[in-house]
Design a binder for these strands. Structure first.
Lengths: 92, 92
DNA sequence: TTATTTATTAGCCATATAGCTATATAATGA
DNA sequence: TCATTATATAGCTATATGGCTAATAAATAA
């Protein structure tokens, strides 16, 4: 599993963005409106998520639409469960 | 879910330590031996994990034994599944 | 072409992180 | 008490992060 996914998911604002995008695709502006941060700040968070391949973007006229890459998110969760979940076979 | 857990889990060395401790408790020295980092470097990673309450330590003579706090780890995984797992109800 | 809207990029700052070496502490044994 | 072993802490450096404002780009409409 790519390190960039862990880094991307370690920030609260970005996790919130992921949760928003779980509802469905949104424009950059719509995402910005959910936060009290400056617009470029959110833009950069979106870029971090894009570099981790957790979201994809697509221009639609003047808008840029972001949508979740559910595949990566689910693969990440599966990786976590495989490595940290399950039996917890403690000795002593 | 505490932000410190996400930060703690976002580092590869610390995830490796967690995986080691899944096998069972280990002394700080045993943990150090699994890495090519300097001893104080690992000591500090252990401290980050301790602050996130992902591990607990216990002195045993000259040794300090670290063990996984499985509760926090499992709660973290449950939180992730609750927020990011499941249906992925995409619209359009 | 010019203005407007949407969004990114550049550039700055303050703080956090992860590595290191050197030093300190804690327990034990001679 | 002194030496040894195990581990933590202090203090440093370089890089990364996350916030901001100002400037740039891209699309559209007048």
């Amino acid at each position: 599993m790519n390190e960039s996914v862990f880094k991307a998911m370690s920030d609260g604002t970005r996790r919130k963005i992921i949760e928003l995008l779980k509802e469905g695709p949104k424009t950059a502006g719509e995402i910005v409106n959910h936060f009290s941060h400056a617009q470029p700040t959110i833009s950069r968070h979106l870029n971090v998520l894009k570099n981790a391949n957790l979201v994809v973007d697509q221009r639609e006229g003047t808008y840029i639409i972001y949508r979740l890459n559910t595949t990566i998110l689910q693969e990440w969760l599966a990786w976590l469960l495989e490595h940290f979940g399950g039996d917890n076979d403690e000795k002593e």
